[in-house]
C-alpha cells in the first residue's frame, strides 16, 4: 500500500519513482522548494490540493481493486484459505513445523469436511485445530475443501528412500500374516483416496508416522459417537514401528 501511495505522489510531483529520498515528506518538501524557485504557480493552492486528492483517490480505488489478489477482503474464502496456508504451506503441501502439519492439497473433499467436523466436535483430538474448526460455518468448510482439492504442488519429500520397497510391498499387498489389510484396497493403488477415504499420496512422512502411531489416542475420541476412523484402528494397532515408517515413506513420494 505504501509503495503505491508514494509512487503516486512522486508521479504527481513530476519525479520518476525511485528518485530522491525514501522519505515521503522529504520528496514533497524538496519538490515544492525547487518548484517555487524554477516554475511559477499556474493554479491556486486549493484547486491543486483538490485535484491531487481526487487523482490519488482514483488511483487508490484502482489499486484497491487489484489488491484483492494480495489482500483478501475480511471474512472471504480467500482470506480463510490464506490463513490455512500460514501453517499448511503456501500451496497446502504441508509443513514440518514443531508438529508435522499435513498436506491438504488434492485431498478428498468428503474427508476434509469430515475431519473439520471431527475437530469441531472433539471426536478428533487436536488443540490447535479444534480452535480453528469451530469458527467455520458449514458453507465455509465446503468452500475450503473444494479449493484445497484443486491444489497440486509436488510432494514435500525428505523421507528415507531405502524404505520405499518395503513400503510399497505393505501398501500393495498388506501384511497377511499380521492381519494387516492392503492399503490399496481402500486408498487406491497410487493412494488418491475416494469419497470419505483420504488421499495419502504426497502426505508428509512424519505426519503419517504420527497418525498411525497415535491413531487411538487422537481419533474416535467420542465412544458414544463412533465415526469412520474406527476402520483404521486394527490396522494402526497391528503395524509395527518399522512397517509404519516404511509405508509412510512410500506414500510420501507418491504424486
Amino acid at each position: 500500500m505504501s509503495v503505491i501511495w508514494s509512487n503516486s505522489l512522486r508521479h504527481l510531483n513530476g519525479r520518476r519513482a525511485g528518485e530522491g529520498t525514501t522519505s515521503l515528506r522529504g520528496i514533497r518538501c524538496r519538490n515544492m522548494t525547487m518548484a517555487r524557485q524554477r516554475e511559477p504557480r499556474t493554479m491556486p493552492v486549493g484547486v491543486r490540493w483538490v485535484l491531487r486528492t481526487a487523482i490519488l483517490a482514483l488511483a487508490f480505488a484502482g489499486a484497491a481493486a487489484r489488491a484483492e489478489d494480495k489482500f483478501a477482503s475480511r471474512g472471504s474464502v480467500q482470506a480463510k484459505l490464506s490463513f490455512c496456508k500460514d501453517c499448511h504451506g503456501t500451496s497446502a503441501q504441508g509443513y514440518a513445523g514443531f508438529f508435522p502439519i499435513p498436506r491438504l492439497a488434492g485431498q478428498q473433499t468428503e474427508y476434509l469436511e469430515n475431519q473439520l467436523r471431527a475437530f469441531n466436535e472433539h471426536r478428533r483430538a487436536n488443540n490447535i485445530m479444534s480452535g480453528i474448526a469451530n469458527t467455520l460455518s458449514p458453507a465455509m468448510i465446503s468452500a475450503l475443501a473444494a479449493k484445497l482439492r484443486e491444489l497440486n504442488p509436488p510432494p514435500v519429500g525428505g523421507a528415507p528412500r531405502r524404505l520405499m520397497a518395503e513400503g510399497k510391498r505393505i501398501f500393495d499387498d498388506g501384511v497377511p500374516e499380521a492381519n494387516v489389510a492392503a492399503c490399496a484396497a481402500c486408498h487406491g493403488p497410487d493412494a488418491p483416496g475416494v469419497r470419505e477415504i483420504p488421499r495419502l499420496a504426497g502426505q508428509l512422512f512424519p505426519y503419517v508416522v504420527k497418525e498411525l502411531t497415535n491413531w487411538g489416542k487422537e481419533r474416535g475420541q467420542n465412544v458414544a459417537k463412533p465415526d469412520t476412523s474406527f476402520i483404521m484402528s486394527p490396522i494402526a494397532h497391528s503395524l509395527t514401528k518399522p512397517q509404519i515408517e516404511a509405508v509412510a515413506a512410500y506414500v510420501s513420494y507418491l504424486k
Binding site: 492381519n179 494387516v180 489389510a181 490399496a184 484396497a185 481402500c186 486408498h187 487406491g188 493403488p189 488418491p192 483416496g193 475416494v194 469419497r195 477415504i197 476402520i231 486394527p234 490396522i235
Partner: peptide, 24 residues
C-alpha cells in the same frame, strides 16, 4: 477372531461389503 476382524476392515464390520477404492 483376529482373522475375521482383519477381513472386516475391508469387507465391513458385519461383512456387509464396502465401497473402497474398489467395490469390496
Amino acid at each position: 477372531q483376529a482373522k475375521l476382524q482383519y477381513c472386516n476392515v475391508c469387507h465391513g464390520i458385519s461383512a456387509q461389503g464396502f465401497l473402497g477404492y474398489y467395490p469390496i
